[in-house]
Amino acid sequence: MLALLALLCLLPPVTLAAEDFAAERRRMADQIGTMAAQTAFETARPRFDSRVMDALAKVPRHRFVPANQMSHAYENRPLPIGYGQTISQPYIVALMTDLANPQPGQKVLEIGTGSGYQAAILAELAGWVYTIEIVEPLAKQAEERLKALDYRNVEVQAGDGYYGWAAHAPFDAIIVTAAASHVPPPLVKQLKPGGRMVIPVGTPFLTQNLMLVEKAADGSVSSRQILPVRFVPLTGGH
């Protein structure tokens, strides 16, 4: 049994050709599209924006995960990326991106770069993406990765995200994937009127719900909490 275990750990990661990955990626995007329709009630969106779905079908997620996880890159599940961090479940990435609703020409701030996957998706959709990562080695890896994939509209910074990125503020959308005990007030200030901030609430591998903070044209702020799934807590409810 132990020998079998040892063997399992030593197995080389399955290597797939680029075209196999592309096919898997399309399958994953299709799967997520179907799920989006099923949870339309909770998320209040009948489907995810087609641009989000296109981005999902385009960004090579396998380039954002460690080599030993590459064969799982297009499964709809969170994956470890080292340093105690994870790359979110693609369905959650799609939902967060859809809620943030980045448009061409817009500026987006991301707190918690992680692998850089979410930043790449945002870069496909927005004008400029500014992303801050608290763990220095992760920031460096993400920066190199995004450069290698030729994302020229993404800027990565290592450091503290609490005060946002004043030099490029205000932002049309902000995504805060770093766990926070509260919503940093400086980030709310850096949100443009009409802007949206999305914060996943949860723990590694588990996103409990999504907090959506919206700033109205008059500057007033409201928030919503969105469950990623349809789960009516009361039997016979609805």
């Binding site: 369905y91 799934v229 789960f231």
Partner: peptide, 14 residues
């Protein structure tokens, strides 16, 4: 069963 069926849509925190 309902919670496990929702796994792919982020249902596990339930």
């Amino acid at each position: 069963p309902e919670i496990l069926a929702l796994k792919d849509r982020g249902g596990l925190p339930l």
